[in-house]
């Protein structure tokens, strides 16, 4: 267990290091605010997904009634 978590930690660390060295035209990560956008679109999408599940529940109810 300890070994696996250590391995995962190393993989993640190498990821972060490679993420820092990648240079694109304008590095949006360097501004440090991209996480806000990520949070916003994630919330939007999860909201839409929950909405779809709600629609599905309503349809299921109608199907059972008829």
């Amino acid at each position: 267990m300890k070994k696996t978590s250590l391995a995962i930690a190393f993989v993640l660390m190498s990821y972060m290091v490679s993420a820092q060295t990648a240079t694109t035209g304008f590095d949006i990560r360097s501004s440090g605010m991209i996480y806000v956008v990520v949070a916003v679109i994630t919330v939007i999408f999860i909201g839409i997904a929950l909405f779809l599940f709600a629609i599905e529940r309503r349809i299921k109810k109608l199907e059972q009634d008829s």
């Binding site: 993420a19 694109t24 997904a49």
Partner: peptide, 19 residues
């Protein structure tokens, strides 16, 4: 839902090749 949520996070945060 899980896959699309993952891509929304990883798609913006993972490094991309500079072009």
């Amino acid at each position: 839902v899980i896959l699309v949520t993952y891509t929304m996070i990883a798609g913006l945060l993972f490094p991309v090749p500079p072009l």
